[in-house]
Amino acid sequence: MNRTSQVSVTSRSGAQPALFGLPRVFWLAWRDLTLEFRGRAGLLAAVFFLATMLLILGLALGPLRSDLEKAAPGVLWVSLAFAGSLLAGRAFGLEVEDGTLDDLLLTPGSKEWIYFGKFLFQLMLLLLVALALLVMTAGLFYLPLKAWPALLFTVFLGTIGYAAISTFYAGLLARLRGREVLLPLLLFPLVVPVVLAAVRATAGLAQGLPVAEVADWWRLLLVFDAVYVTVCSLLFPLALEG
């Protein structure tokens, strides 16, 4: 039985065809999230991988509290980047397995909405994982959560930049052999600026710096997010079109 067709995009939004992309973007993201939660395999694997990784990192860097505190922001973002590369394949994995990618591409209208739908899906997954990760790093690495609104904002900006690139590459490589190896290879160099800025912002917040001093890094993150989302959404239809 075809899993992807059980939760259909087109039949629900079929009443309002091709004209407006926005509802379709949400339906696509919703469908993928539903499938992800029904399947569970991807998310569970990512969270379990993270937990193991944090334990190993804690053993390798600890047990001094000061050492762990110093490493916490770096650990948070490196783990998120690794988990993200595990999850990136999920964006188009099911479509390729079930052979529904062509149906998706054949849907009338522009192709950008597919990118934005998948991007939203990846963003939601990453944010969920990031929340779990934030709690785990707070517990294992003594990352102070006192400035939690600012921390959440940093995580939000960082994941947008990461998801923009990972969704794009996942789509580009969807049908290739050896994509599991290629994806991190292409993904990591490009997300380094995002991860760097996010680590710096998180480290500043962890040290208890006022928000005004972290704002520079947020601005940099915003610029990267805007550039990556714009360029990727413009390139996506050109690079995927059959």
Binding site: F168, L172, P189, L190, V231, L235, L238, L240
Partner: peptide, 14 residues
């Protein structure tokens, strides 16, 4: 050609 063109454009941001 298509895939590498996309990477060539994205990479130039750096």
């Amino acid at each position: 050609a298509k895939a590498s063109a996309a990477v060539g454009i994205l990479g130039a941001i750096n």
